[in-house]
Nucleic acid binder design. Structure first.
Length: 416
RNA sequence: GCGGGCGUAGCUCAGCAGGUAGAGCACCAGAUUGUGGCUCUGGCGGUCGCGGGUUCAAGUCUCGUCGCUCGCCCCA
């Protein structure tokens, strides 16, 4: 084999690019409806940006980060997610003190060193949004609604919204203790992985896929029973607002997420069109992250959606509108001596705004027609010796086959 | 890091119980010398992922290796 791409990376080939552009267009339109503005940060950051925020004992930090020392000896990391980088940037530029609320969206590549499988790559793309500086449930609602708008605008109508609350820090700590007590009592029936999780992050025993863990988790305490009044009120208003907007969340008390910085609301968007990795989006509230970075406490909530996973869903649903990046016109000629005249014609067409091709291979007229046909143009403009001598061009409609002749002086005004 | 499946022309694949490679599509060119799509004819194109082993002989058996893919872990 010749040189190949790096494992877990994908070339986005020209035949696929219109799908990407379509998704990006939809994202721009929908986020604009909510008044969110785009945010771009560097592809890599100092390693502490992620290790400190995401959690030292998460898989992302432990084994999935692309971390390396640069020539100066600094440890840098290809971003595995956006939230930490964006919080770093907002703090650095004091954007959180310029307006009451900050609303941002982003789109770009992210990197995680994992074994690739369906819907999981080492370089993948996420679209996401962050709503910063509001502690209130209406911002949780707004963020989920934005994800809903984008999903539905893309035609993903039948997704499942899984929703849970981890509560505030006090609630979560109480629950954590109860959970450790419970799982310790059935420890021997847990999978090896989960016995390990019990030490590191007991919440994650809950969403294990191992049958014995699922069985064991059935009798586990319910996190929702541990929410204090503040946490419960918050969660209930989020649910109420969503329902009023026609979004029916599925309450999943065992939904926890792999990033340590979440509290209160957490959620996932799932679709049956995907494989084992069935969630195409997820997010939650992160009220403590600003402090982690040394800033003043500042509440926020956000989500991220996997673009490749949305693509899988759209492919399965065949949900693309008529996407076309086909050229409009091909200028055919059999005679290279006519190049100046050909180019004059080509330029007139391009200045009309038509996507115009011409032959670069010095092929026969027949071959040029074949290429024109394959390219999918609606019109061929024929420029031969006779046309040159008479200052004319032939215009052939490829669909019907009819052909007319007009003067080159009329070409600029001709209605194709 | 672990487990399953796969690896033959650009693509999709065939190749029976081992005897030194085929099809369709795609691509290129012709079918009475300025015109496509249909049809016909011809052409280009493969060290059968790579390396070792068994054999007179391996795409076909065997071992290893690499790659792809699906799944586990975890996430988007």
């Amino acid at each position: 084999m010749m040189l190949q791409n790096v494992k877990g990376t994908k070339d986005i080939l020209p035949g696929q690019i219109s799908k990407w552009q379509y998704i990006e267009d939809v994202i721009r339109k929908e986020t604009a409806k909510f008044g969110y503005v785009e945010y771009r940060t560097p592809i890599f950051e100092k390693t502490e940006v992620f290790s400190r925020s995401i959690g030292e004992n998460t898989d992302i930090v432990n084994k999935e980060m692309y971390t390396f020392a640069d020539k100066g000896g600094d440890s840098v990391t290809l971003r595995p997610e956006m939230t930490a980088a964006l919080v770093r940037s907002v703090l650095q530029h004091n954007l959180h003190s310029l307006t009451p609320t900050q609303r941002y969206w982003y789109f770009g590549p992210f990197f995680r060193y994992e074994r690739p499988q369906k819907g999981r790559l080492r370089q993948f793309h996420q679209f996401g949004a962050e709503c910063i500086s509001s502690p209130n449930p209406e911002s949780d609602y707004e963020i989920i609604l934005l994800a809903d708008y984008v999903s539905k605008a893309l035609g993903i109508n039948d997704y499942t919204l899984k929703l849970n609350s981890l509560g505030n820090i006090a609630s979560r700590e109480k629950y954590r203790e109860a959970l450790i007590r419970y799982f310790s009592s059935v420890r021997s029936s847990l999978s090896a992985d989960s016995q390990n999780r019990l030490e590191i992050n007991p919440l994650r025993v809950l969403d294990s896929k191992a049958p014995e863990d699922i069985e064991a988790a059935k009798g586990s305490p319910n996190i929702l029973d541990f929410l204090d009044t503040e946490s419960r009120d918050h969660f209930e208003l989020v649910i109420k607002l969503l329902k009023q907007s026609g979004i029916e969340p599925e309450i999943c008390p065992r939904l926890v997420r792999g990033l340590d910085y979440y509290s209160h609301t957490v959620f996932e968007f799932q679709s049956s069109a995907l494989g084992a990795q069935d969630s195409f989006g997820g997010g939650g509230r992160y009220n403590e992250l600003f402090q982690e970075f040394g800033g003043k406490p500042n509440p926020a909530v956000g989500f991220a959606m996997g673009v490749e996973r949305m693509l899988i869903i759209l492919d399965a649903l065949d949900k693309y509108p008529g996407l076309s990046d086909l050229p409009d016109v091909y200028v055919v000629s059999g005679n290279t001596n006519l190049l100046p005249y050909i180019n004059r014609v080509v330029n007139i067409l391009r200045n009309k705004g038509l996507r115009t091709l011409s032959d670069l291979q010095r092929k026969s007229m027949k071959s040029q027609f074949r290429e024109a046909n394959k390219a999918g143009v609606k019109f061929v403009v024929v420029v031969g010796v006779e046309e040159f001598e008479n200052e004319k061009v032939q215009i052939k409609n490829m669909a019907g086959g009819e052909q007319i002749e007009i003067g080159i002086s009329e070409l600029a005004e001709y209605d194709f």
